Amino acid sequence: MIQFIWVGILPACLVALFLILRRPARQFAEEMHVDHARDLFRQQREWLEARFLTALGKVDPIEGLRWEEAHWHDEVLWARDRQTRRLLALIGVHFEASPFEVSPDPAPRHATALFEFRKGRWFAEGKRLDELRPDEAVRRNQRFEPVVLHPRRGF
């Protein structure tokens, strides 16, 4: 009789333990993944920006030329795609107003370049969000969630 009780209680306890520890374990693994991805992004940033411009130029040559003249910001906003759980690096750029463009608003136009980390590599496919800064993109787009960065140990 006691054996039958343990046959039912032990699996139930294991399932409960799994349900309790699943989220912290996933968060820890994602944190380690984010640290590695951030380091890779910093090492490859210049190359990734060039790759971004090349990919964008293949899709839309005029837009590619406009982006070549853009001013890239130094700050990187880290986010995660809620659907795919992939890490994203969002970088803001701004464009100077063209001297031939008659516009009532002389402020520079903004956009956000998106870089995606998947299968251990960063991809620059020319994905962009026009007229949005990175922080606005994360706030307005339900698909993105901000990645909270914790201070690194030893730094």
Results as ranks from 00 to 15, higher is better:
Arg23Asp: 08
Leu65Gly: 09
Phe155Asn: 02
Leu65Arg: 15
Arg153Met: 04
Arg86Asp: 04
Glu136Trp: 05
Cys13Leu: 15
Val138Thr: 08
Glu131Gly: 05
Lys58Gln: 15
Arg22Asn: 10
Ser103Met: 04
Ala16His: 02
Gly120Pro: 02
Phe155Cys: 01
Asp81Gln: 03
Asp39Tyr: 13
Ala25Gly: 08
Asp105Lys: 04
Pro108Trp: 04
Trp47His: 14
Glu131Phe: 15
Asp135Val: 00
Val34Ala: 10
Glu31Trp: 15
Arg121Lys: 14
Asp74Arg: 13
Pro104Gly: 03
Arg22Glu: 13
Leu87Ser: 09
Arg82Ala: 10
Ala25Cys: 07
Gln43Arg: 14
Glu46Arg: 15
Phe100Leu: 09
Arg121Pro: 10
Trp122Arg: 10
Arg85Phe: 06
Glu116Leu: 14
Asp60Leu: 15
Arg51Tyr: 03
Trp67His: 14
Gly126Phe: 11
Phe95Ser: 02
Val102Gln: 08
Arg80Ala: 09
Phe28Arg: 09
Val7Thr: 06
Glu68Gln: 12
Glu136Phe: 00
Val93Lys: 07
Glu68Ala: 12
Leu132Tyr: 04
His94Met: 07
Met32Tyr: 13
Phe115Pro: 07
Trp72His: 11
Glu75Arg: 15
Phe28Thr: 06
Leu14His: 12
Pro99Met: 01
Phe18Tyr: 12
Val59Asp: 15
Ile91Phe: 11
Glu68Val: 01
Ala89Glu: 05
Ala79Thr: 03
Asp60Phe: 15
Arg140Trp: 06
Phe95Val: 01
Arg133Trp: 07
Arg128Gly: 03
Ala111Val: 05
Leu56Ile: 03
Arg51Glu: 05
Leu53Trp: 07
Val15Asn: 11
Leu65Cys: 08
Ser98Phe: 02
Glu136Gly: 02
Arg152Asp: 07
Gly8Ala: 15
Gly120Asn: 12
Arg45Met: 02
Leu40His: 08
Leu87Ile: 11
Pro24Thr: 01
Leu90Ser: 03
Val59Ser: 14
Pro61Gln: 07
Ala79Leu: 09
Phe4Ser: 09
Val7Gln: 14
Glu125Lys: 14
Trp122Leu: 09
Phe52Asp: 00
Arg45Cys: 01
Arg139Tyr: 08
Gln142Arg: 14
Trp6Ser: 12
Leu19Ser: 06
Leu14Ile: 07
Thr84Lys: 13
Gln44Leu: 11
Phe144Cys: 06
Gln142Gly: 14
Glu69Phe: 14
Arg118Leu: 05
Leu14Ala: 14
His71Met: 12
Gly120Leu: 13
Glu49Gln: 12
Arg80Ile: 08
Gln27His: 08
Val138Tyr: 13
Arg153Ser: 06
Ala12Tyr: 11
Arg128Asp: 00
Arg42Met: 10
Glu68Gly: 13
Gly8Gln: 15
Pro146Ile: 00
Arg152Ala: 08
Gly126Met: 05
Glu31Ile: 03
His73Gly: 11
Pro146Met: 11
Glu96Gln: 13
Arg82Asp: 05
Leu88Cys: 13
Gly126Thr: 05
Gly120Gln: 11
Phe95Cys: 02
Leu87Trp: 06
Leu90Val: 02
His71Pro: 02
Ala97Met: 01
Thr112Glu: 03
Leu132Gln: 01
Pro24Val: 03
Trp47Ser: 11
Arg153Thr: 05
Gly154Ser: 00
Gly64Phe: 15
Phe155Ala: 05
Leu88Glu: 10
His36Asp: 08
Phe52Pro: 01
Ile5Thr: 09
Glu75Lys: 15
His36Glu: 04
Phe115Asp: 02
Phe52Leu: 09
